[in-house]
Design a binder for these strands. Structure first.
Length: 879
DNA sequence: AACGTCACG
DNA sequence: ACGTACGTGACGTTG
């Protein structure tokens, strides 16, 4: 017996859209509806294994049934933009999956489903009709099953209705269901029904009389009286409703089962599309060996000799030079364990792979360099760990791709291939899974050669495409003058690392432990039981249920026990103070004392990593460990900085920008008040307080200054009265007044922020002083919250990003000057507005001068850039 | 893997 | 009416 699955496309898409939390791919396309649709469809297809499958859509024009009654057409609720944009993509996906799409001008999806459902039934097939819409229940028979998916917490559950199930649940047969609807109406479908008759009454009437015609004949018998009367008074409307509610099972849609045959959905086209939509779970369903082979890229071939390589390079150069082109090659490396060097040349389809065991890879790379090649490489900073490259001769594809769209979470060769070369390649993870490079190289060399070949080829082909794209976006200078040189600076910072006194760190940790134990005992005593204090869940139960403390906020999963909430409960019970202190100490112990210790290497130094392609704004990030969040605000935490020390004979020189973001704001907005204040080296928070609170400058209280400081921060973050009120524990109204006053004081700041938002809305991205872009898909959202978020980042990103640009410039210049002067001092850390130099004792003065000059002159603003510099024998003292 | 929490700028 | 400040990373718990 054959089986057919027919899907009500828009209805399921709609269900999925509202059932699945918002998802967006890195292009900013909303994908949650499509994702949910696919999950429902795949679940059903897996389960049913049908012979036929098709998806029906409405055509936007008014449908035939509704046309009969002009006044009822076209009043359907507008679709939100986030859903509307998914409809064409959904159809694209279905086409790519080789699933038949059914549309018929003038007919609704219902009619198509009804008609084809009946046809399939007539040829003896079993039919499943999938819809989120109960209207379809009228089609149920003992061969036609209506399936209504429900998105629940536990996953997707499906309610199934054969005709007997309809009768059980609604007390009427499927065909009587039409009459039921004719009486009760359906607002979402523009079916008026009969006023005063709802589901209950309608069911009673239809159970008794089977259809509206008979009911109308016996109208006088019907109770309540209002229903009886209205059935007579609105008889015409009832008849019309019945027509509207009736699904046309005879519509002239072609019945061609051959076109609906269920084939392999996992086509290469579908793979490509899922990659673009970033549906990782669905991609995982593809048979790995059947992944689309990208014919235009060949696997690498083993290099036989250096001579062979030299010969190939010579030929390649002749070719490229004769066309007057810059010679471009692409290389692949492995950052941790170099198993060899892969080189892709323009003149040969197959890249060369030179195993490290047989070849001096550095020598091969030098050949490229000496011949004047521009060498594409995916991640210069990592490559430098074993291959010396010259910044004048390389192009970093991951940095290029990052600048073009900093919102993505990876910039691998597969990402570049997909986004800039229009190719779909399996990712490194697709190929290797959990198997090591080494194992694949030894045991599945063919696969390995594909991988390195693609990597090399994409690195080469990415060079011109990304260069062009960067030029088009006017980010070529940002790339070549800031980002690429910076990669070399970061590399050297990582290589130097920072020295840490292991024993001191251990002692610090031990001191914490004894106090932590004391606190634990106190907490257990007060709570009356032992529990896991680190578990917010358990802690919430103890505090807010057992001890009945008043709870403030709640999170998705329960009570909030955040410091913000506990802070307000300090006076309620002594346990709160103990918990706050416990939290503080365990944080220091686990993340810093224990955490950092694990990173200390043989050389007594921590070599953390700096990442250049992570943040949306252009800042650098730090991991393994994060050296940009070492405690400083609280004294106890700050003490940790004493274990960060320079090498013997060296001292730390630490320089940080004073209020760089506010100065950038002054410059970018051109606000005369603000510029004037900075030119006169005024206390900016105090002056703001004086203006906002109408207080003479010399009478500003510390509290007023603190509040004004919060306002200044708020401005940089993309001010909202709510956010400010939270921060200052004041009402929204008061916060709103502060902001208004602020804008009166600095009117050009207001204009500037408004301009940032409107520009970003128009262009779709924001821009820093140096042309760094941040795309902002959120600004187009119809969701208030998301759009507001978009507006805040439109205000913040240019400021935070410009400050990031400036310190990057300073880093490059500082390092350059240290090198030119052959100083032993070196830049070792960057913390967003701060640089730390491990300086040779004799070089302190020189280093201080260099830091000051290069940082203050990194950019020419209309206000001075001020730098505070301290020296010390550890990081604690140098701040 | 997601969440809550908290460290930094 | 909606319900947040901007940008990160690490840890412990929990499902």
């Amino acid at each position: 017996m054959s089986k057919a699955v027919l899907i009500d496309g828009l209805s399921i898409l709609n269900r999925a859209f509202y059932g699945v939390p918002d998802l967006t791919n890195s292009e900013g396309l909303h994908t949650n509806g499509i994702y949910g649709f696919l999950n429902i469809m795949l679940k059903i297809l897996d389960e049913e294994q049908p012979n036929y499958v098709a998806v029906a859509f409405d055509v936007s024009a008014p449908t035939f049934r509704h046309k009969m009654f002009e006044e009822y057409k076209g009043t359907r609720k507008a679709m939100p933009e986030e859903l509307r944009q998914q409809v064409p993509v959904m159809k694209e996906v279905l086409e790519a999956m080789d699933i038949k799409i059914l549309e018929k001008e003038g007919y609704e999806a219902d009619d198509i489903l009804g008609t084809l459902g009946r046809r399939f039934e007539e040829i003896g097939a079993e039919v499943s009709i999938i819809s989120g819409d109960r209207d379809l229940l009228q089609l149920a028979t003992d061969k036609i099953k209506i399936r209504i998916p429900k998105t629940k917490m536990t996953g997707t559950e499906i309610e199934d209705y054969y005709s007997k199930d309809v009768e059980e649940k609604y007390q009427v047969t499927p065909s009587e269901f039409i009459d039921l609807k004719a009486l009760m109406g359906d607002a979402s479908d523009n079916i008026p029904g009969v006023p005063g008759i709802g589901e209950k009454t309608a069911t009673k009437i239809i159970v008794a009389y089977k259809n509206i015609e008979t009911a109308h004949e016996h109208a006088s018998e019907i109770k309540p009286k209002k229903a009886s009367q209205n059935l007579v008074d609105y008889w015409e409307q009832a008849k019309m409703s019945k027509v509207l509610a009736t699904i046309d099972t005879q519509c002239p849609v072609e019945f061609d089962p051959g076109a609906m045959v269920f084939k392999d959905m996992y086509t290469s086209k579908a793979y490509l599309l899922f990659k673009r939509l970033e549906f990782k779970n669905i991609i995982a369903r593809f048979d790995k060996d059947a992944l689309p082979k990208e014919e235009r890229l060949s696997p690498a071939v083993l290099l036989k000799s250096v001579e062979e390589f030299e010969q190939a390079v010579k030929e390649d150069l002749e070719g490229q030079k004769s066309r007057g082109e810059q010679a471009v090659a692409g290389i692949y490396y492995h950052p941790q364990k170099p198993e060899g060097l892969c080189v892709s040349l323009a003149s040969r389809p197959e890249p060369y792979f030179a195993p490290a065991e047989q070849f001096d890879c550095q020598k091969l790379a030098d050949i490229l360099k000496n011949e004047g090649y521009l060498v594409g490489v995916m991640d210069v900073k990592e490559t430098l760990s074993w291959l010396k490259l010259d910044k004048d001769g390389v192009f970093d594809t991951s940095i290029g791709a990052y600048l073009l769209n900093p919102l993505k979470d990876s910039y691998g060769y597969d990402d570049v291939a997909r986004d800039y070369l229009g190719m779909t390649l399996p990712s490194e993870k697709d190929i290797f899974g959990k198997t090591s490079h080494e194992t694949v190289f030894l045991e599945q060399q063919e696969r390995f050669m594909e991988f390195v070949g693609w990597s090399g080829a994409v690195a080469r082909r990415g060079v011109s495409v990304l260069t062009q794209a960067l030029e088009n976006a006017k980010m070529d200078k940002l790339y070549s003058e800031i980002e690429l040189p910076l990669a070399f600076v970061l590399r050297s910072m990582e290589d130097y690392g920072i020295r840490v006194e292991k024993e001191e760190l251990k002692a610090y940790g031990d001191a914490l432990v004894s106090r932590i134990h004391e606190l634990e005992e106190n907490i257990y005593d007060l709570a009356g039981e032992r529990f896991n204090i680190n578990s917010p869940k358990q802690l919430g139960v103890i505090l807010f249920e057992k001890m009945r403390l008043p709870y403030g906020k709640k999170t998705k999963t329960g009570y909030s026990t955040s410091a913000e909430v506990l802070e307000k409960l300090r006076s309620e019970d002594p346990i709160v103070n103990f918990i706050l202190e416990y939290r503080q100490l365990t944080k220091l112990k686990s993340t810093y004392a224990d955490g950092l210790e694990g990173y200390i290497r043989e050389d007594c130094r921590i070599h953390g990593k700096f990442h250049q392609t992570i943040t949306a704004t252009g800042r650098i990030s730090s991991t393994e460990p994060n050296l940009q969040n070492i405690p400083i605000r609280m004294e106890l935490g700050r003490l940790i900085r004493k274990v960060f020390v320079p090498e013997d004979g060296y001292v730390f020189v630490d320089a940080d920008y004073s209020q760089i973001e506010l100065r950038v704001l002054a410059h970018m907005s051109g606000d005369e008040q603000l510029i004037q204040a900075y030119k006169e080296d005024q206390d900016i928070h105090k002056i703001t307080a004086s203006q906002v609170f109408h207080t003479p400058l010399d009478q500003v209280t510390p509290l007023q200054r603190r509040n004004a400081k919060a306002v200044n921060f708020g401005i940089v973050y993309g001010i909202s009265s709510f956010g400010l009120s939270q921060d200052l524990s004041i009402t929204r109204k008061e916060a709103g007044e502060y902001i208004e006053k602020y804008f009166q004081t600095y009117p050009q700041v207001k204009e500037f922020l408004d301009r940032m938002v409107s520009d970003a809305k128009e262009k779709g991205y924001s821009e820093t002083m140096f042309g760094r872009r941040r795309p902002m898909p959120e600004l187009k959202s119809s969701n208030f919250m998301q759009r507001s978020f978009g507006e805040r980042i439109a205000m913040n990103s240019p400021i935070q990003g410009s400050a990031a640009d400036i310190i990057k410039i300073a880093m490059i210049r500082v390092k350059e000057r240290l090198e030119v002067l052959h100083l032993k001092s070196r830049l070792i850390l960057q913390v967003h507005d701060e640089l730390l130099i491990e300086a040779k004792a004799e070089e302190i003065e020189n280093v201080t001068k260099i830091l000051r000059e290069e940082m203050e002159n990194a950019a020419r603003l209309s206000v001075p850039l001020e730098v505070d510099i301290h020296t010390g024998k550890n990081w604690y003292e140098a701040k």
